[in-house]
């Protein structure tokens, strides 16, 4: 994704954290064929997992991880990705890079289309 003002005719370098290509599933995961054998079935690495979040002022304050609420010490960064608005299922996410209690970093994103929350390892 370009992020600055465009330089005509030149491609800016890719930026980490760009949106995954859409697949029709809300989490962007790759569809698999249920008839394929388990050994040959496609499996997405680092697939996002749903997460329960308590928020205040629009920012995450605590997350339910391993059935335990963990407080957010600091929101390091917030960024948004909107893409594919011309497709049947566009992408709109707000991501939060968090520092949880005990200095554990974690990225959480909100799917802005259905207000679901997901986490994904960095």
């Amino acid at each position: 994704m370009a992020t600055g003002c465009a330089l005509p005719g030149r491609e800016p370098p890719p930026v980490a954290g760009q949106a995954a290509a859409p697949t029709g599933r809300p989490d962007g995961a790759v569809e698999t064929d249920p008839r394929a054998s388990a050994a040959h079935r496609l499996r997405r690495l680092n697939a996002p997992a749903p997460v329960e979040v308590r928020a205040a002022d629009g920012l995450p304050r605590a997350l339910l991880l391993d059935q335990r609420w963990r407080a957010v010490d600091r929101v390091e960064e917030v960024w948004r990705i909107e893409d594919g608005w011309w497709r049947p299922r566009p992408v709109a996410r707000t991501s939060y890079q968090l520092l949880l209690e005990g200095d554990r970093p974690l990225t959480v994103y909100r799917d802005d289309l259905d207000d679901s929350r997901w986490t994904q390892r960095d």
Binding site: M1, A2, W79, I81, E82, D83
Partner: peptide, 19 residues
């Protein structure tokens, strides 16, 4: 348009959001 390509092919060139 400026890069003579399509929206699908211009992911790397476009801005990431509506901000």
């Amino acid at each position: 348009i400026r890069n003579r390509t399509t929206l699908e092919e211009s992911h790397q060139l476009r801005r990431p959001n509506s901000e």
